[in-house]
Amino acid sequence: MTPSYYLLLSALLFTIGAVGVLVRRNAIVVFMCVELMLNAVNLTLVTFARINGTLSGQVMAFFVMVVAAAEVVVGLAIIMSIFRTRRTASVDDANLLKY
């Protein structure tokens, strides 16, 4: 076994997250899938930090976490306000902007 396995794991998690975004309709679950993708990327960064022998990857993963936190806050606020007006959290119901 080599550290590459972590990368493979990360790839699989990223894919699962991507597919989740595509198939789930609850906006909050969609958000969670995005979080999963971000985590997969973090795993990649950590693994590369190990492979390269430098901490920059870990620092980058740290920044990713910060940005993810900010994103979650704003995203959940948006979901809340949409829910307040439309009484739904389904991404399919917000489809007014179309042909």
């Binding site: 991507a18 975004v21 595509l22 309709r25 399919d92 007014l96 179309k98 042909y99």
Partner: peptide, 17 residues
Amino acid sequence: LRRMQTGFVRSYALSML
């Protein structure tokens, strides 16, 4: 082609993927 603009975020995401 216009019909492809369904307004569904997930179909857009699919094409993005």
